[in-house]
Design a protein around this nucleic acid. Structure first.
Lengths: 339, 339
DNA sequence: CTGAAAGCGCTAACAC
DNA sequence: GTGTTAGCGCTTTCAG
């Protein structure tokens, strides 16, 4: 910067002003400085600027893993939105592990970033003591852990209700649910089960607990196994609502290998609307949780805290969902793929 | 740090020594400093340290997108290896777009990081002029763009040959290839086609160009479409080698919907060994390119440059592949999933 | 509108 | 073994 100033025949302060696009600089001076910058191939030193400004321009994104389709797609969106705000994202995979989530909250990495976006899987409301570690924070996820923090949630209950209503409208009455673990009322699976029950109640269809199958984890194989247990038990459902797309894809697999026609014999709906749902066989009807809106809102809320002087009123934002109908509920599939 | 020094009754320099684990510090002093650090909840200022040291402790990872399974899985591994080296990763999705790839190489972000790992999709050897932008660099990918840089490649040719040999050993003689675009000899598709041809030649099986089907892009739907064109053309292959798993998954889809039994009528092999291959129907035999080794080696090569004083001799490293046999070539599927 | 000087928090010579 | 001191490159009062 000294060199640039010397070459342009101005003071170092003027160079700084030009670089930071300050007003009150004569066009002629600005041009001279710009030329000097170009000639010397000068680039500002980010570390020095950060030191002086007391911020790093970076935010953390703590999620279970990038290899999980939902989070990989979310990360792409967050990175893109953050870039528009001039922010750089550091991804911290937590492997859905409690220690890693706490570390994201309190660890050294936290000092490296100005703020944190975290999608907690294992943390509970009781862990908010850990969250008290200072610094701007936005929580992504289903349940509101502590209303003292910003939350960006999705419409688990309403989305699940809409999915169930679609099945009911087709005359389906024995609608199985795959995924919810007992006792997880406030997590995604539990909330989505709540939406399902609301739809049943509104339609006057009795709730049959034997049609609810837990799935262990949320992988394809868990869905396949759950569907198998449904078939083996002779429960003869005429529809399945799986609380995630990966589970639904596993369900589709089992139904296919057992000669059950989808959607004729059994309709299937998932949740998440991952890319793979557009290409499965049949294509998968799913609740799109508004990933783009979630990413956008999360970055915006965090940025709001970054630029704020004083304390900021916490916000809970729920993204709008959309039910995307595809082949697994009999929708026209012509637009879905090239087949 | 001043406060810590004051409270511990030592100089600021001693605090620095303790924090950085320097030798020649009496246990007693160290303990006193540690206590003061804990009491004051002191954390080093990363920006200041970086400014002083002239480095940031961060590396970039430029890949097409995290939502693409292969790259999402790779990113998880790179982040984990980098963390072991004390490095923080900044992911830069390029959307397989030329401008974004050049920006990763020359843009402002480059100044923020000490080094860059890039998986170029559009850059060619001619673009090495852009690569000349200073700074440690490791190139991930199939072809060697410029031997002046470190490259971490995978065994495209050998892996494809092994895949083809497996099919030949089963007596398959009409082995279709899905994916290679004409004129991309040095890209992944072309290299994998080369391996296929080597295997045919070694087995004395004539190369039939009509069995090679380009696929446009590398999505599931592209594979489905390519398989359809094979069937429509009445080419009656008894096996398909798809140059990526996503293509292979599309191929499986089409075969299934057309009543072609896999592996009885047609065996299928993919390349990449993405997680989804373990759960498809049937499970997919695939060439595992050694993702873990690629991630490990790439981080190691970059770190080598980061710590080096003078110039470093460039290295080209090819990861070891492994052919993973699954249901789509008739392997025992018992271990693959819970079904 | 531009210049001079101070200092962000840390590390590394160099003395003691 | 430990203390003193001089910057790393930038932004920013405060003068002019």
């Amino acid at each position: 910067m000294h060199d640039v100033a010397a070459r342009a025949g101005v003071s170092i302060k003027t160079v700084s002003n030009v670089v930071n696009d300050r007003p009150h600089i004569s066009a002629e001076t600005r041009e001279r400085v710009d030329r000097a910058i170009a000639e010397l191939d000068y680039q500002v030193n980010v570390s020095a600027r950060n030191l002086r400004l007391g911020r790093t321009g970076m935010i953390g994104l703590a999620i279970p893993a990038l290899s999980v389709a939902y989070y990989g797609e979310l990360a792409d969106l967050v990175i893109s939105r953050a870039a528009e705000e001039g922010l750089t994202v550091v991804v911290e995979p937590t492997a859905a592990c409690r220690d890693a989530e706490i570390d994201a909250l309190r660890g050294a990495r936290r000092r490296l970033t100005d703020g944190l976006l975290i999608a907690p899987v294992t943390l509970t409301a009781a862990d908010v003591t850990h969250l008290s570690a200072a610094g701007p924070l936005v929580i992504l996820g289903e349940d509101v852990l502590d209303p003292a923090f910003d939350h960006v949630t999705m419409a688990d209950v309403d989305g699940a209700r809409a999915a169930t209503e679609l099945l009911l409208a087709q005359g389906r009455r024995r609608i199985a649910v795959v995924g919810p673990a007992p006792g997880e009322e406030s997590k995604a699976g539990g909330l989505r089960l709540t939406g399902y029950r609301q739809a049943l109640r509104a339609a006057g269809v009795p709730y049959d607990e034997s049609l609810v199958v837990a799935a262990g984890a949320w992988g394809r194989e868990d869905g396949a196994r759950a569907a198998l247990s449904l078939l083996d038990a002779g429960l003869a459902p005429d529809a399945v609502f799986a609380v995630t797309d990966t589970l639904a894809l596993g369900v589709l697999h089992t139904l296919r290998t057992h000669g059950v026609a989808v959607p004729e014999d059994v309709a299937v709906v998932g949740f998440d609307d991952v890319d793979e749902a557009r290409f499965s066989h049949p294509t998968l009807t799913s609740v799109s949780p508004g990933r783009a809106e979630i990413a956008r809102t999360a970055v915006r809320l965090l940025q709001r805290r970054l630029v704020a002087d004083g304390p900021v009123e916490p916000v809970v934002h729920q993204a709008e969902f959309r039910l995307v109908e595809r082949g697994s509920t009999g929708a026209d599939r012509a637009a879905d793929s090239g087949e």
